[in-house]
């Protein structure tokens, strides 16, 4: 796995994606675009984990039953050199743990995304706009002439 770090290009792509997503986060003032950038950013973190888990020449971490016909068929699709070396039983898997972790992280990401989008909807309802600059201007305008917002009406 540590060697995996040395096999560079996947990581180069991941870093590039990460930078791109951060760039989106930095430059846009639009709430929806910001959420897109954020999801992208989380996704690259996921990709990073998946890339870590890849073992050179290994297969997906799915248990192969060498006896059954299905297993035989799958084994046949593996790299013949490995089968020769390890036998069908000794199949080299990718590390399954990061996959599991990222599954969790994706769930977290989806939850964040949904909460974020829900808030974006509320912002649009309250301000009539989804640009943060406009929101800031509206707040500044509201706070200048008179003390801001005791709009103390309970939740509508």
């Amino acid at each position: 796995m540590i060697d995996a770090l040395a096999t560079g290009y996947v990581y180069a792509i991941i870093v590039a994606m990460m930078m791109a997503s951060l760039f989106v986060l930095l430059t846009t003032g639009n709430l929806i675009r910001k959420m897109i950038g954020l999801s992208l950013f989380q996704t690259t973190a996921g990709l990073f984990y998946i890339a870590l888990s890849k073992v050179g020449g290994g297969t997906a971490p799915i248990i192969i039953d060498a006896e059954s016909a299905v297993g035989q068929a799958r084994a046949a699709r593996l790299d013949p050199a490995y089968v020769e070396h390890f036998g069908v039983d000794g199949v080299v898997y990718g590390n399954p743990l990061p996959h599991v972790l990222i599954l969790t992280a994706i769930v977290v990401g989806v939850a964040t995304l949904s909460v974020g989008l829900a808030i974006a909807v509320r912002v649009r309802e309250a301000y009539g706009d989804t640009e943060l600059d406009a929101v800031r201007r509206a707040d500044a305008a509201a706070s200048e002439p008179e003390p801001p917002g005791p709009r103390g009406r309970p939740n509508a």
Binding site: V115, A126, R153
Partner: peptide, 28 residues
């Protein structure tokens, strides 16, 4: 926390952008 901060928006609408900013920063 994000969700609860946004709940403040009914009383003070500035809670919405505040929650959103917190969400972005927190997630980063």
């Amino acid at each position: 926390v994000y969700a609860m901060i946004a709940m403040g928006g009914a009383r003070d609408r500035r809670a919405y952008p505040a929650a959103f900013n917190y969400l972005i920063m927190g997630t980063i």
